[in-house]
Design a protein around this nucleic acid. Structure first.
Lengths: 206, 206
DNA sequence: CATGACAAAGCAAGCGCTTGGTTTGCAAAT
DNA sequence: ATTTGCAAACCAAGCGCTTGCTTTGTCATG
């Protein structure tokens, strides 16, 4: 847990310290929400997972929806920071796009704390007001993608870029339902396959 | 509701007659499950929607999960029949693929009884045993896609075809979260865009 | 007069959340 | 070095409500 990106964000007060009680609760929530969904996870499940009484949870959060809100907000902020870091490592738009795809795949299929799948699949379970508030962070997230795609395919109009983004997002978001992280297809190769969806003119792999 | 495909299937006893009490219940369930999800839909919601008492539901179904099971099963069977019909209308694999994409888009975004989005998004809410039983129908559904894709890209190995299928499935399954059926982008054009993802060598639209 | 389709009422269990009080860790005051 | 103060973290108990489902009875139809 010595992830420098996480530690820096904790230092800046942007996310909860994973070592704190609140942080542990959030990580347990991510795991349960991903395994069995938000609605089917009870506050008692959550409490049992970290070894406290169900009522004690409400010392840290005012309500159950607030837990989901916190999970999603921190997840988006972390993932956005990861995406920006991935883009910054490359100069060419093509490389940036591949890094972007790879980074998002990792965030959604990765081994530790893959909260992005919770964000993606439990978004509808958020109260209307929460969704509205979280849109601010989602737009920042989207902007990273749109910038890179625009530079990658400057010949396309904005609305076509938008459609491509959404289609890629669907393809990537869907991978947790079928992709096996331990199997023969590794994340780099999968990222390359998806990259070729967005860049039809490029040379085929192999 | 004079859909000949539906009527034929009702005649063969493959699906429930939409005019029957059970049929009305299933259609109401689809609507509610799609709007607010299976878990958040109560049997009382469902009963109120068709104007009966909540207890009366259990004359038609033994349990709430059994309702979801029936919704998903009938949906898969209908959608499979629609896909097969769409493929049969064309001779060339390229046209067949486009018809396939178009048909699935319509089933998941279409105006009337778009149960496919329920099937897609509520699959995890099915009991383990239901999932196992329904896999039989899902395999038949998948086979339609795999056959066409194999004929379309005969140069690719089976596992690459599989990945393409899953990526397309993700892109299509995700459309309900962003696509606006009444907007400027119509389903034919969207289908064409997705088609070009699967057929990178083909000429670009326009 | 048997059957199917429902209404009416309600049960047991589980839900999110509240309450009042206890433990723990730590730092300032003595 | 010991005491005191205090806030964060937590426990134990349970309230009020909703949930899926059951039971019993009614009534129209064939």
């Amino acid at each position: 847990m010595a992830d420098p990106l996480i530690m820096a964000m904790v230092g800046r007060g942007e996310i909860t310290d994973p070592a704190s009680a609140r942080g542990k609760l959030l990580r347990a929530a991510v795991e349960l929400f991903r395994e069995q969904g938000y609605e089917r996870t009870t506050v008692r499940d959550l409490a049992a997972k970290i070894g406290i009484q169900s009522g004690s949870i409400f010392h840290h959060f005012r309500s159950k929806p607030e837990i989901l809100h916190a999970v999603v907000e921190e997840c988006i902020r972390i993932t956005t920071a990861r995406l920006q870091a991935a883009v910054a490592e490359h100069a060419q738009p093509g490389d940036q796009l591949r890094a972007l795809i790879r980074s998002e795949l990792e965030s959604i299929n990765g081994g530790d704390g893959d909260a992005l799948s919770v964000t993606v699949f439990e978004w509808r379970s958020l109260p209307e007001q929460s969704q509205q508030e979280l849109l601010v962070w989602r737009r920042e997230y989207d902007a990273v993608w749109m910038d890179v795609l625009r530079r990658m395919r400057p010949e396309l109009p904005a609305d076509e870029i938008f459609v491509i983004r959404r289609l890629l997002m669907g393809a990537i978001s869907w991978t947790p339902t079928w992709y096996n992280p331990g199997g023969r297809l590794d994340l780099d190769e999968l990222a390359l396959r998806i990259w070729h969806l967005a860049v039809p003119g490029a040379a085929q792999p192999q």
